[in-house]
């Protein structure tokens, strides 16, 4: 069983003797029939809503329509209203800033840990990996409740320790001010995201040819230039994918912000795009407007990830 598992797992798809499709050269309807269930499910649950959302964003769809009045077609009015609304731009700027800060911190800490992991003693490395695995495996809502408890105003450990260090943190409310709110959110998001980066980059580093590093060292390359010219090129493809995923994930962050808002943050001052869409649509019944914001968010995702995707495609072309 275990032999089978590793055999199957480690064989890349392209290793199959006669390419991916040894059976049937002439067109048969069977493969299409096999795709029907998956395609139908995806079309129904993702494709149709996407189309519906575009339509919705051109309509005046508020509470009156929710109670049966047919929606009016208002063209670009929703978008016009949003673009001229200062609040949307504040939320957007906040979201982009949050996304970039969190993605950068996660990448820096994750890559740093992965590099250091190669120099740790065996026991310590195992310890780190265990800790990271625990943090990674924690369900997002469970980890949010724990962090809220850690940052609790009255009985939280963080306040207790900071007060013990002689600082004035007794009864400090971490979620009250927006900046402090986002600090807590950043701690939680980075804590949850670092393990994935560290593990992935560490796995990539084990592929690094050791002779190459040694040769560079003999040639007199310092640690900095060894990293730039030997290590970095090897792990660049992995860094690009991981970085891309971090940007996507941190831009769409919802659960952490929503739950912290419910726990006492001011929603208006701390909304990011995800929670803004939710509060506008499901909370406030402004479905047309929130659909427009959602389309805007999808477009923003495409724009923010475009450079990464292009770099990845170029890399794909080189190999």
């Amino acid at each position: 069983m275990s032999r089978t598992l590793s055999d199957v797992e480690h064989r890349p798809v392209t290793d199959v003797p006669h390419g991916p499709a040894p059976r049937r050269t002439r067109t048969s309807p069977l493969p299409y029939a096999l795709l029907v269930p998956a395609v139908l499910a995806l079309a129904l649950a993702l494709g149709y809503p996407l189309v519906r959302q575009v339509v919705l964003s051109f309509q005046d769809f508020g509470l009156a329509q929710q109670f049966g009045r047919p929606p009016d077609w208002i063209g670009l009015d929703n978008y016009r209203e949003l673009v001229t609304d200062g609040y949307l731009w504040r939320v957007t700027a906040r979201s982009i800033a949050f996304c970039l800060v969190n993605a950068a911190l996660t990448m820096a800490i994750g890559v740093g840990l992965a590099l250091l992991m190669r120099h740790m003693s065996r026991g310590v490395r195992l310890l780190v990996q265990t800790g990271l695995l625990l943090a990674w495996a924690m369900p997002v809502v469970a980890s949010l409740t724990v962090w809220q408890w850690l940052f609790d105003t009255q009985y939280g450990v963080v306040n207790h320790v900071l007060t013990g260090l002689g600082l004035d943190y007794e009864g400090h409310g971490w979620l009250l001010r927006p900046l402090s709110f986002f600090f807590v959110a950043t701690v939680i998001v980075v804590w949850m995201s670092v393990p994935f980066v560290a593990f992935t980059v560490y796995a990539a580093l084990t592929q690094l040819p050791e002779e190459l590093v040694e040769a560079a060292e003999i040639d007199g390359a310092g640690a900095g230039s060894r990293f730039r010219h030997v290590v970095l090129p090897t792990i660049r493809p992995v860094l690009l994918v991981v970085g891309l995923l971090q940007v996507i994930w941190d831009l769409r962050v919802f659960t952490q912000i929503y739950i912290l808002q419910e726990a006492g943050g001011s929603a208006r001052d701390t909304n990011l795009l995800g929670t803004y869409i939710y509060r506008l649509g499901i909370g406030g019944g402004e479905f047309g407007m929130s659909a427009a914001v959602a389309i805007f968010m999808l477009a923003l995702t495409v724009v923010l990830t475009a450079p990464y995707v292009r770099a990845m495609l170029r890399q794909e072309g080189e190999t």
């Binding site: 809503p49 996407l50 919705l56 769409r252 919802f254 995800g274 869409i277 968010m297 999808l298």
Partner: peptide, 9 residues
């Protein structure tokens, strides 16, 4: 595709 961009519809 982020879910957050689709859940309204």
């Amino acid at each position: 595709i982020p879910v957050e961009g689709l859940f309204i519809s």
